[in-house]
Design a protein around this nucleic acid. Structure first.
Lengths: 125, 125
DNA sequence: TATTGTTATACTCTATAACTATA
DNA sequence: TATAGTTATAGAGTATAACAATA
């Protein structure tokens, strides 16, 4: 329920950028890992390759990213943001940071740190 | 990611009872609130009425619950578990408690309490 | 032979409109 | 008129199989 509450705050905020949360995640990972392949993206976001193709295609048509041949592996395609994509993500990441702060304003800074630490302990085993 | 990790543990455990998590939630709420209406269930689980109908129907066909006319409101139907449904839920709730303990075994008892408190603070505002 | 990316497709989940019967 | 439950259906998300190009 807590996760849904936070997502419920972030989702409409991302809609202002024409992005769903998964789109933001895709662009954010490419933003910080230029040249990453679709395979690596699927691993990072737990997406299946067939379900990533359409999303990448849509973002490419919007002019936010480009696919170009991978220098080492002819099968793969390296993904990079366009200047427009980078500009959008700079704004979007600021917006997400603000929305996260807003979603967790019921917690003190110390509580927020504790929560993140405990959640990490949970999913890291 | 933490929520997905916990769900990932509970989901296969519930599959042994032939239940998805939403089915468990439906049966659990009826178990502890006999006579509850579909409308109230939708509110509790954030489901839309058309999407509850089929689930209730399937559980009814399995002999786990029954629908009978509501004593005060002729439009509504009161939901109750059958003896078989109650027996299943007693086992399933024990299993879930065990799976939750297993999912959170990386945390101490105090940390588990703290986590729950902080998550409640988050979604209660 | 194995892997990356892709297409086609099926299945599930979620959402909206419209109907019935009761209030 | 409004509401509880239902039906039909559309859309999004998620899954598997199979193929072309490359390793």
């Amino acid at each position: 329920m807590a996760a849904l509450a936070v997502i419920g705050h972030i989702l409409p905020g991302m809609a202002r950028f024409g992005l769903r949360i998964v789109d933001f995640s895709i662009l954010s990972i490419i933003f910080h890992n230029p040249g990453i392949t679709s395979k690596q993206l699927c691993g990072a976001l737990n997406l299946l390759p067939p379900n990533l193709v359409g999303k990448i295609g849509t973002l490419e048509k919007r002019g936010l990213l480009v696919r170009h041949p991978h220098p080492q592996d002819g099968r793969a395609l390296g993904l990079q943001l366009t200047a427009e994509g980078r500009a959008l993500m700079q704004q979007a990441e600021l917006a997400v940071a603000g929305l996260e702060a807003q979603s967790t304003q019921a917690l003190t800074t110390a509580e927020r740190r504790t929560l993140i630490r405990l959640l990490q302990k949970l999913y890291l085993g």
